[in-house]
């Protein structure tokens, strides 16, 4: 049994094997692998005795359940109006320049992925972004460079 399979069994033991357990299990896989591979979705469907198409259909509905391979740290920059007004584009530019990737891409070393996202709920402290679950607000290009610098030092 490979580790993915073991983890899915552990998640199913924890959350149950009903349809209602599907989202927490999908979230659990993303937490570890950063995305849902086709293999993981098929494994989950077997474990919960659901058609793989149902698992895929549910997973792809939710924007945080990525089904493309993602880096260890997913940077989500808010693009909704308040952040957009307060300099979201300069933030994106700073990230793109520093990491040499475009929106939707992952760095060669698999450390960072960059995506845009809808309202994060920090409009009063715009512009905002999240890296995995960590929130950063009132961003400036310098601040972003500092934050990414710290993430570059983290072990992956």
């Amino acid at each position: 049994m490979d580790s993915l399979h073991k983890r899915i069994i552990a998640l199913a033991d924890l959350h149950g094997r009903t349809r209602e357990s599907l989202l927490p299990i999908l979230q659990g896989v993303v937490e570890y692998d950063n995305y849902l591979s086709q293999k993981s979705m098929v494994e989950i469907s077997k474990e919960l005795d659901l058609p793989a198409s149902e698992v895929y259909g549910t997973a792809t509905f939710y924007s945080f359940l990525e089904h493309r391979k993602m880096g260890k740290f997913t940077i989500r920059v808010c693009k909704t109006i308040s952040c957009s007004m307060k300099g979201k584009n300069q933030i994106l530019l700073a990230i793109k320049e520093m990491l040499k990737i475009d929106i939707g891409q992952t760095t060669q070393d698999g450390r960072f992925s960059l995506v845009e996202t809808n309202c994060l709920g920090w409009c009063h402290k715009a512009p905002a972004m999240v890296i995995n679950h960590e929130v950063f607000t009132e961003l400036t290009p310098e601040k972003v460079r500092g934050i990414l610098g710290e993430y570059m030092k983290k072990e992956i």
């Binding site: 009903t18 209602e20 939710y62 924007s63």
Partner: peptide, 25 residues
């Protein structure tokens, strides 16, 4: 607590129920 996964529509109450039931919202 039940965690959502990034879908505005799940704030609509019946979509939220669907999501809680493990389905598309």
């Amino acid at each position: 607590i039940f965690m959502g996964s990034g879908a505005y529509i799940c704030g609509e109450e019946t979509a939220l129920f669907e999501s809680l039931e493990g389905k598309r919202g």
